[in-house]
Design a protein around this nucleic acid. Structure first.
Lengths: 319, 319
DNA sequence: TCGTCCCCCGCAATCGCTTGCGCACGGCCG
DNA sequence: CGGCCGTGCGCAAGCGATTGCGGGGGACGA
């Protein structure tokens, strides 16, 4: 690799000067700068981020530790994050937490050893990495899955009100028995949505029945006329089951779901969905992280972004 | 951050010894090793990949320069790549080429300056980065989009035969006028599929008509009874257009498409698709790259992985 | 003519780690 | 008892950058 030394030799100056013209960190005579720039051009010098990091301490890189598997809007989220980070001159080190606490721990350790300037994390349940990051003072922001403790920067979707809205919509349509199909309990997102569901029920004057909250469609068949689906994974299961049992969505069963999908309008009936503001979540997460890197003392923020209802026909509405 | 020096001090040895017990690069007396390990434990030492890289030259990281936007199976591909890389002890630096030659160039430069051990690249058309990588001898493997020149390792789907198969299937069902909707010409993948389409036509004894190759459904309406769709993006457009024009897929128009989607069975009729072996492509790409890193002199390989036909009903078959 | 002040630039220490060399200490053989 | 060899470790030289400090020399005023 081309080093500063070679550039310096070619330009007939010291590496000190080369460094200063590159970083514009001290005035350099115009003619000298010219020579240096030309030498850089000729040699194709790119610099060595590794060496630079060693002395400056920073790496201009962010760690992104997420659960790659099974995330519907994963691609969008990463793209948004990459984009925002790139704009700020940061690059991303991607690592899969494999949805397990120990993988997560290993992932974060690796990121630390690579000296990333900050970490974006989707915590697994029972995360041991989070306390460690806090203890070490590594700038961190939680994405998508939030913790109750508001002692860390975090950004994710608003779940309670949104779910309540979904329930209300079904109730307004006249449904009295409304079910909820969710993912695994214990995950904050799931719990919040259950809470929102309950809240919505209350507001509609309907009573809570824990039998109506399940993890698959089957137990609910014949029990409910309205259904709230709490995430993408679950949605796929529900749709498959509905098909298998000959349940006609929108007619036999009014359905509203979380997770906007590109094919929402291609199925019959088109799906009424609650679309997560994925891109905005990604953007905000990066901004939050960068601002924390800039000011480690800032008070932690929790940002919840409201999802948007995409009203189509699976809820039974004809327009 | 905890450094080797601190560990060494705590263990009462030199940093040389600490280094050797960590890397197992020279025998160390059992008792000494014990002490060092304990000191590492106590201090929470993680090592500093940056400093290590500076001296060893390697970084144990791979650059992944892809076009994040608009890639349907992007998530799967990245997950597969991450997984394979992680298994081999490598981490990933992700960067979006933004589908432009200059972004790509900048991306690759950045990866170089970060001293990644190798690069996985989805070349944009007119890529300037590729020659540069070759010239500099950076281990590189092309993913998904392949070049004609077989002077670089590359892995992607087989397109010609697969497309031909798709055409043949429609022809066997009795269709005489078969259209092809593709993405932008010039992209190798597109060109190969057009070629396969042509080949399939020939094999079926049908004649080529360039009017039947378009980038959207509209010009083909009423012109064809069978349709091959060449990728995901295009598929979304075609399905939307079909809906808008009241064209019934499977009945009015037999359709087969590239790009398996999770909702293939949820639409009416279920989609007959050609599923790319995404995961295998990702795995193979990483393996190829690692083997090249290990042996830079190895002759370049081009690997094409066969996609699998998922036979459903949009082709008009009831079965 | 000489001192002062600026402008430009180079010296060398430093970041945390790896690694070639070489030293010290015992044990063993002759 | 002396020499040799094996075992266990430490010294110090880098890796390629950044950066505090200081030096040389020209311009200008006294």
């Amino acid at each position: 690799m081309v080093t500063m030394k070679e550039v310096a030799a070619l330009a007939g100056v010291s590496i000190t000067t080369v460094s200063h013209v590159i970083n514009e960190t001290r005035p350099v005579a115009a003619s000298t700068r010219e020579r240096v720039l030309k030498a850089i051009e000729e040699t194709g010098y790119t610099g060595d981020a590794i060496a630079r990091s060693l002395v400056t301490g920073g790496t201009k890189s962010l760690g992104l530790a997420v659960s790659l598997v099974s995330h519907p809007y994963f691609a969008e989220l990463i793209a948004a994050i990459e984009n925002e980070a790139a704009h700020a001159g940061y690059s991303l080190v991607l690592i899969d937490t494999r949805e397990s606490a120990e993988s997560e721990q290993a992932a974060v350790r690796m990121l630390r050893s690579r000296r990333v300037d900050g970490v974006l994390l989707t915590p697994t349940s029972g995360s041991a990495a989070l306390p460690e990051l806090r203890r070490l003072g590594v700038p961190t922001v939680l994405v998508d899955r939030l913790t109750l403790a508001q002692d860390t920067d975090q950004v994710g979707p608003e779940n309670v009100q949104a779910t309540s809205t979904l329930v209300r919509h079904l109730a307004d349509l006249g449904h009295r028995r409304i079910g909820l199909v969710t993912g695994a309990p214990g995950v904050p997102t799931t719990d919040e949505r259950v809470l929102g569901y309950r809240l919505g029920l209350g507001r509609a004057g309907l009573k809570w029945d824990e039998e109506l909250v399940t993890q698959s469609l089957e137990p609910l068949l014949g029990q409910v006329s309205g259904l709230v689906v709490s995430d993408h994974q679950v949605l796929m299961g529900v749709l498959g089951a509905a098909r298998a049992h000959g349940v006609r969505i929108g007619t036999d069963l009014a359905l509203v779901t979380y997770g906007e999908v590109e094919w929402a309008e291609l199925v019959e009936p088109p799906l009424t969905t609650m679309a997560q503001p994925v891109e905005e979540i990604g953007r905000t997460a990066v901004r939050l992280l960068l601002s924390r890197i800039a000011d480690p003392e800032r008070a932690p923020e929790t940002i919840r972004l409201a999802p948007a209802l995409k009203h189509r026909q699976s809820c039974g509405c004809h327009q």
